[in-house]
Design a binder for these strands. Structure first.
Lengths: 333, 333
DNA sequence: GTGAAAGCGCTAACAA
DNA sequence: TTGTTAGCGCTTTCAC
């Protein structure tokens, strides 16, 4: 039978019950600073007996460490905040924050040097902010990170010396997809890229280039972003430039759906005429039409790790932590 | 030219600059308690000049109000937290929380009387929690809300006397879909329901029943939930029981995709043989295959309002605030 | 209408 | 190793 802990027990009551000073009780509870074995035992007993739980607000105030993790999303418009991917990242961060007794805030950082820097500087000055996770950043923005944010900021995507990065292994995912297409006999493969300003969008591009060189095929890319609209546009441009295109890889499933829609409208058969592959393996990929071939992207795991690391103190032993991406073959390729 | 507000400005500095006491400055800033017009003016000027922003942590500690909003998601398994819908709700809440200088936590509440109540009681006792938004609740759970949470809890879906509810107008959305199907000549219409234990899933069911009675058609429903798997299963069951089925409405787009996939596998033509409609108008609805007919569901707007209201003090003038749902006709029906 | 003073619960110098 | 003493920044009685 558990007794319901009354969270209104204060450290002072614990100290009194243990026969020590509040300072000693604090040292024992936080595990910081010296304490004798006896003191430790007695305080721990008192904590258990009274059901003491530290008050996060008071702790934050005293330590001046803030009380929330902010997910800072770089984007052209404020509406990036409504993106499903951003939502998944935020939810994962909120779950981690909750476990730490904190909360997660979601905030837009306008793209473009000055504005973005100002937004990050605001974050650095905000005493209620414990840690920051940056999403969709440019390399430049990260490199000019306000010093106030150093040590408590992580990034999803590539990192820097100061800012640990957490990313999916998109090069290997893309290479897996290319290998699959290639072994299927596809030779005229077009890659619809991500937004060029996003730092993390460059790595899969390089992987594409490397693979194509290796197998001696032409490197064909069209500019995209992570939206379906652009996916549509991209495939049209691709077919205009290279009418013999027999495969398209989009760097997001959403864009791939745009590609599929455009192809369907043009009466082009998938995968017979043109194979299509996405990236992310969103839940819908398995459901939409005959099934989208894609590569997995463990968004929640990545975001949770980034949040955890930012909260724990983002000292970067490795500048980039990579999460594996697996090819999922369905019908479209 | 805006000056960058230094968030390290304290109320005391404002008071000094305004030539008043911290107490007076506090009264002006919070708008609580008496203050003279002059005092008000001078404090406001100082606030503007110094770029003062209240420190939420200190405020929370002094008021004992907590520093985060918790999104409490009721579900059978912890994995509900990874649901895309939950992610959208959480992101919207995090955005609102951020604007209030707070953060949002995400937490699972197990379904089933005792466990769920215990989880809510924990929330009520946690002094770091300012407000709660409950998602996917049962009516029962809401009715047994711990008194400590009253006045700072809102629900997405139906509410109670104590807990303001925020929901999409699913009855009208469903009726719109039914009207569309009916005018299209569909007569053997099956509704795949939401999870029976979710309170909000009942309202569209009633709307369905009412409409079918009104037009003199049989009321046919099969049990579903909001997943694609169940959508698949549901349509199979429906066709077994009523082979003449000529339309299926699923109460979520995701389930509708399951329905579409199952029909495609059975070689049943959509919309010629069977029309399919979903609910939510997720971004993918426009993209997947030939386009899913559905009704809109302003998830972010609903969640943001619920969060705002919980934070502002959830006194319920109306027990339920309704957001409109519009039919979007695409290809599947 | 205003100011002085006492907290909110905890942490961190500094002495002892 | 321990206790004492100040705060962290804000709110809120309670006299004036």
């Amino acid at each position: 039978m558990e007794l319901t802990p009354s969270r209104s027990v204060t450290l002072e009551q614990v100290a009194r019950a243990a026969g020590v000073s509040p300072a000693t009780a604090s040292r024992v509870v936080t595990g910081v600073g010296p304490s004798s074995a006896t003191a430790r035992r007695r305080v721990e007993e008192a904590v258990a007996a009274l059901g003491y739980v530290p008050h996060p607000v008071a702790r934050s105030l005293a330590r001046g460490l803030g009380h929330r993790l902010v997910v800072a999303v770089v984007g052209v418009q404020r509406s990036v905040l409504a993106d499903p991917y951003v939502a998944r990242v935020t939810a994962a961060a909120a779950e981690v924050a909750d476990a730490h007794g904190l909360g997660a805030g979601l905030r837009w950082v306008p793209v473009g040097g000055a504005h973005g820097r100002v937004a990050l500087e605001d974050l650095g000055r905000d005493r209620s902010v414990s840690a920051v996770v940056v999403v969709n950043h440019t390399q430049q923005l990260l490199e000019s990170l306000p010093s106030a944010l150093a040590g408590r900021t992580t990034a999803i995507g590539t990192g820097t010396g100061d800012v640990p990065g957490f990313d999916v292994d998109s090069p290997s995912g893309v290479e897996g997809l290319l290998r699959h297409l290639h072994s299927d006999g596809r030779r005229e493969i077009v890659l619809a890229t991500g937004p060029s300003w996003v730092a993390a969008a460059r790595r899969p591009l390089q992987a594409h280039r490397a693979f194509m060189h290796q197998v001696g095929l032409p490197v064909r890319t069209v500019a995209g972003n992570f939206t379906a609209e652009r996916g549509r546009a991209a495939v049209q441009r691709a077919l205009d430039r290279w009418p013999d295109t027999d495969a398209v890889i989009a760097l997001s499933d959403v864009a791939a759906f745009g590609v599929l829609a455009a192809l369907a409208e043009s009466g082009i058969a998938v995968p017979d005429d043109v194979a299509v592959a996405g990236f992310d393996d969103v839940p819908m990929a398995a459901l939409a039409g005959p099934g989208l071939t894609t590569a997995t992207h463990p968004v929640e795991a990545i975001a949770a790790s980034a949040a955890e690391c930012a909260l724990e103190g983002a000292v970067a032993p490795t500048p980039l932590r990579i999460f594996p991406s697996e090819v999922v073959v369905r019908h479209s390729a």
